[in-house]
Design a protein around this nucleic acid. Structure first.
Ligand SMILES: [Mn+2]
Ligand SMILES: [Mn+2]
Ligand SMILES: [Mn+2]
Ligand SMILES: [Mn+2]
Lengths: 220, 220
DNA sequence: CACGCTATTTTGAATAGTCAAAATAAATTG
DNA sequence: CAATTTATTTTGACTATTCAAAATAGCGTG
């Protein structure tokens, strides 16, 4: 019943709330959706009238329980579709986000359930992003990133929180996908750089901002 | 680039042209799309302005070459998606039309090519409907139907030209899907009824209008 | 050939979503 | 704290799609 536009607004509010919790400023939302700020304001007021978000003028938006439910549904479809595209259709993990951006609005519950079963009820998508359950539960664990973790300890990559095809291409080429084990050997705050080592691969330098998008946990 | 609405209009014009060739009357089009006639007129004038159809007022519409190209693309997506849903996700062949009605607008060329390869480049969908090629060729063979075929000869079902879930459910239950071999033992024009026989199944009575939706060719 | 039925088109109005540009509030800064 | 910068909201306008209802054209029938 909610339109494609509404689904996109709600999903992006949910995603933005994942990092900066509290209220999402309209500027951030309009940027995420590639619309001018006035459009976001108008739209958010309509969503608020429908009880999907709470809008505090000049401060920002936040999802209501109803809005969150819808958003989690969209996110589940998005991430299951990405998983399907990578694992079944063997598509590049950098290419699947744009595809899923459309498909997430066109998949019925029936199809989604079949897809979920076919994929073996995965807990995360190919980027390590957690897949909300059918009931709307989502794992929200806080991980260290390569920018914040301890040095000289083996770490397992659990998630790459970045959608851009270029970055994902780059990460893949250097083996930085979920499951990979790496060690940060050196970090230079001033230069905004760090050095990585990975078994059987040459050392790699990474910017701190890129490193912040790679979530890790202690390996074993 | 064409909107979902435009894609639906063009696809339905193509589908309607398959039976009654020549110009499609606005009434038939508006009924197929479930809009009031005035809406179809307005929309068709817009399509004509974009060079996708030719509109002859008070007579009807027909696709231009450009419009036909778009429509065949939509139809290819629709039928490949149906094939996927039945053969990979094991969905009921009566349920897939509604699903494909949405998905046909959300699948990119890249995804479609992968899907096509995964399915082994099928020539027809689960209902026997021909799948347009990537280049926009479509097989348009004229078949006999159970309403028009010879009596007492074994016939192979090649296609069931009906979208309604109920009819497809019924057909499936009686083994009337592409590949099945049947014989028409008797036909009563006056009563609008005919009798079928199928190996290993009890004789079946069918209305002429239903029979007209089942296309057949001589078996062997 | 006039009459009436039917299909189609026109007209006027509504909804959803968007942008450009002006107005305003809030935050920052000297 | 007044002045300026920045973020947000408002206003007015536009596009795409739709419906309801009135107008019209094209029949076929008598
Ligand atoms: Mn989307
Ligand atoms: Mn992802
Ligand atoms: Mn459709
Ligand atoms: Mn079909």
């Amino acid at each position: 019943m909610p339109s494609v536009t509404v689904e996109n607004y709600l999903k992006h509010i949910l995603l933005l709330a994942e990092d900066a919790d509290g209220l999402i400023p309209m500027g951030a939302l309009s940027a995420a959706l590639s619309v001018v700020p006035g459009t976001a304001t108008t739209m958010v007021k309509a969503l608020a009238a429908d009880g999907l978000v709470v809008h505090i003028p000049r401060q920002g938006v936040r999802l209501t329980a109803a809005g969150r439910r819808v958003a989690l549904g969209v996110l589940r479809r998005h991430r299951l579709v990405e998983t399907f595209l990578v694992h079944v259709l063997k598509m590049d993990w950098g290419a699947v986000n744009v595809e899923a951006e459309q498909l997430e609005h066109a998949i019925s519950d029936t199809v989604l359930d079949r897809l979920d079963a076919l994929l073996g009820h995965p807990a995360t998508d190919p980027h390590g992003d957690p897949i909300p359950s059918r009931e709307g539960k989502i794992r929200s664990q806080v991980y260290a990133t390569l920018a914040t973790c301890v040095l000289d300890r083996p770490l397992r990559v659990v998630r790459v929180t970045e959608q851009s095809a270029e970055f994902l291409q780059f990460a893949e080429r250097h083996g930085l996908r979920p499951g990979a084990v790496v060690t940060v050997t050196d970090r230079n705050l001033a230069a905004g750089l760090l050095s990585l080592r990975r078994r059987g691969a040459r050392p790699l330098a990474l910017s701190l901002s890129a490193a912040g998008r790679i979530l890790v946990e202690p390996a074993r």
